[in-house]
């Protein structure tokens, strides 16, 4: 897969403080790319460099193979973490103005604005001022402003913060739809679990360094170690107790945390390279009713913590 955006060995310092240290990322065309890391890791600085708001001290960025230039702003849609619109300007005028700044002509801009206002069912807001809208409503306008010029690359910094669950889903669907239509999307967030299932590529950034990147399933496979959660309704207490003793000698066994309706015995078993899940399951069957058997796939959050600890 070819890369739409490539950032190579980007470094950026603010005085004594290093915001980015030799960070490279490659965002494949048509992917949803997660730029993940805790607060203050340098995500926003990297995004601002991609948007040409700040210039890197070192390194270079290419979009579709060409080094970034002023005209590329038309190819990028950016929703910053700090959402903001002109409070005392009418919604419609504001949307048209911002779209025109991105290079649309007025006629085209108002056609698309109408389309989106109808689609998100907010047509009657056209003549309202932002200060008359609620925060969530303003976020919808912000979303329209970000995508209206149909950019190749969409960047959302903390995409779902400020949306209620219903609107967050609505926006999520719209973003997936845009991807279907060919857009490439970057999500940047410190709440890794919120975008995990959406992303197909991720880069983890911590303390101005990139610590891990790649295709998400490949990364997860790398970190998976044959761990299973099992829930069992024990019928033969005595035999089960001795079996559990043997099991603990072979594998790493701990209490598992998941919800069931009964009061089953819940265990997490790390098998590593010893044994297969089928074997394990057939053993448990002998002591009662197995109601739960799931492989534990490491979450991005776990992987992040693990990588940070390894790098220490």
């Amino acid at each position: 897969m070819t890369a739409l955006l490539e950032a190579v060995e980007i470094s950026k310092r603010f005085g004594e403080f290093t915001a980015l240290n030799n960070v490279s990322i490659s965002v494949p065309k048509g992917s949803i790319f997660g730029l993940l890391g805790p607060n203050g890791a340098g995500k926003t600085t990297l995004i601002r460099i991609i948007n040409q708001i700040t210039m890197p001290d070192q390194g270079n960025v290419t979009l579709d193979g060409a080094p970034l230039e002023q005209h590329h702003i038309q190819d990028i849609g950016y929703m910053p973490e700090e959402r903001g619109l002109y409070k005392s300007m009418k919604v419609g005028e504001q949307v048209l103005y911002l779209a025109q700044l991105k290079g649309l002509d007025k006629k085209e801009a108002s056609k698309r604005a109408k389309y989106w206002f109808d689609k998100l069912d907010i047509g009657d807001w056209w003549n309202k001022k932002i200060q008359e809208l609620s925060k969530g409503q303003a976020q919808k306008i912000q979303f329209i402003v970000t995508i209206m010029h149909q950019p190749k690359l969409l960047i959302f910094d903390e995409p779902f913060s400020g949306f209620d669950p219903i609107n967050a889903n609505l926006i999520k669907d719209e973003i997936l739809q845009l991807r279907e239509e060919g857009a490439t999307i970057i999500f940047s967030t410190h709440r890794m679990e919120s975008v995990e299932e959406l992303c197909d590529h991720i880069a983890l950034i911590n303390k101005s360094q990139k610590i891990l990147d790649g295709e998400i399933n490949a990364i997860k496979r790398q970190y998976q170690n044959n761990t299973f959660d099992i829930g069992v309704k024990v019928t033969d207490e005595v035999a089960y107790k001795s079996f559990l003793g043997d099991l603990s000698n072979t594998y790493n066994v701990s209490k598992a945390q998941f919800k069931t309706l009964g009061n089953e015995e819940k265990l997490r078993i790390e098998m590593g390279s010893k044994g297969s899940p089928n074997e394990l399951l057939s053993k448990f069957k002998l002591f009662g009713q197995v109601s739960h058997f799931v492989e534990v796939i490491p979450s991005v959050n776990d992987i992040f913590i693990q990588t940070v600890n390894q790098n220490k």
Binding site: Y78, P80, G84, L85, L101, V145
Partner: peptide, 13 residues
Amino acid sequence: TNRIIEVIISSVK
């Protein structure tokens, strides 16, 4: 204060 500046500045110099 409106925090619109980042949106604007990603479109114009």
